[in-house]
Write a protein that binds this DNA or RNA. Structure first.
Lengths: 100, 100
DNA sequence: CCAACATTCAGCCGTTACGCTGAATGTTGA
DNA sequence: TCAACATTCAGCGTAACGGCTGAATGTTGG
């Protein structure tokens, strides 16, 4: 199980850091967070000037990375921020800041 | 000065998150850190299986992002980790974890 | 001075990222 | 039922990324 877990963790790092690499996706996370942690795809797309189809793809990247989860609510999709997943980044950083 | 500072900060985020987006570059930072914070380009390249010219480019990305600094020492180049710059990531994360 | 060495520079090349647009899907309200 | 709406899917072009290789640069020891 060790091997699997650490492999999974490596993939998780990969997904999370890749997701955070784009300014638009970082902005999405901030927007959702400061909107109370939940926002519909349309609201999110509305905060950007580029085509909402483009935002859709960013949302998918964030969801695949586990940084957003989404729930269908009628004809709209509500995205929720997954703060826990952001802690992966914290964990990685702690390699450098942890006291000996 | 406010405008300039915040613009610079945005660029800094961009550079840092982009640099961290690649597993090889994250590995470089960890390697340097656990080697006492300093390592020559050759030593770093030695920890990878791909051509060292490829590592060179990764090192440049990290240096441009301010995550590594480098000092010429004779015929070798010593890279030092810039922990302070890593704190930018911490700062960004704190948006989500700061107590109200 | 010169050969060996440490490293970078320049350019090729296949793959992926990200913007766009034009459908398609699925849901709601009248 | 049907039109309006919210959202995603599929495909296209361009630009960037990351691997490679073949030089070029600069430094050292003998």
């Amino acid at each position: 199980m060790h091997k699997r877990d650490s492999a999974a963790r490596l993939d998780a790092y990969e997904a999370v850091f890749t997701a955070l690499a784009h300014a638009a996706r970082r902005r999405v996370l901030l927007a959702v967070y400061f909107n109370g942690g939940m926002m519909s795809a349309g609201e999110i797309a509305g905060t950007f000037s580029h085509a909402w189809q483009t935002t859709t793809r960013h949302l998918q990247v964030l969801e695949r990375a586990g940084l957003l989860s989404c729930e269908k609510k009628g004809r709209m999709r509500i995205y929720r921020i997954e703060k826990k997943r952001l802690e992966l980044v914290k964990d990685w950083l702690d390699h450098f800041f942890r006291k000996p």
